[in-house]
């Protein structure tokens, strides 16, 4: 039964948390937040999925894409740094500013870089969470017996 509740929670909460992550990411340059925090929050959201649906199902969904995601993050970061060459130097930030309905919007290479940070953090954290949860699931039954045996042998 708990699993059903968990799935329900997962269905609702995961998208919300991911939205929060995006929100934290976007405001990061001006207020607390940013790529690291957003990435960690997003990873927690998917951890919820792992808890609800089991590691195997989650792995089938996300598993193969985690290392490429981390790679993509690194590529994005490197690209942001290289784009700076257009502005005169490696890692030089370039900003585009324009106004939509009096609101100043700005996009810059630091944000692309921050996005890369977020991807890498997600990829890394999830790689560990998935792999370890999976292994935990696979031998759950044996584990109980094992603990018991160990307890015995201690005495």
């Amino acid at each position: 039964m708990t699993e059903i509740y968990l799935r329900l929670v997962d269905k609702i909460l995961t998208p919300i948390i991911i939205l929060i992550a995006i929100f934290l990411f976007l405001r990061g340059h001006d207020l607390p937040g940013g790529g690291f925090i957003a990435g960690l929050v997003a990873a927690s959201a998917i951890e919820l999925t792992i808890l609800a649906r089991g590691a195997e199902a989650t792995r089938d969904r996300y598993g193969p894409w985690l290392i490429p995601l981390a790679g993509l993050g690194l590529v994005a970061a490197a690209t942001a740094a290289l784009l700076g060459l257009y502005g005169g130097g490696f890692f030089r930030s370039i900003w585009l500013e324009f106004y939509v309905f009096d609101d100043k919007l700005k996009f810059g290479t630091p944000q692309l870089f921050d996005l890369g940070v977020m991807f890498v953090v997600i990829g890394m954290a999830l790689t560990y969470l998935l792999r370890l949860s999976e292994a935990a699931e696979a031998t759950a039954v044996k584990q109980a017996a094992l603990e018991e045996r160990v307890e015995e042998s201690r005495l």
């Binding site: 340059h29 940013g34 490197a78 740094a81 630091p110 870089f113």
Partner: peptide
């Protein structure tokens, strides 16, 4: 271009560090 100084340091002033970190 940011008011969160820590974040600006991380992604801009010392972005090179952060690149190593990620």
């Amino acid at each position: 271009k940011g008011t969160n100084v820590v974040n600006v340091i991380l992604v801009d002033f010392r972005g090179y560090d952060t690149m190593g970190e990620i």
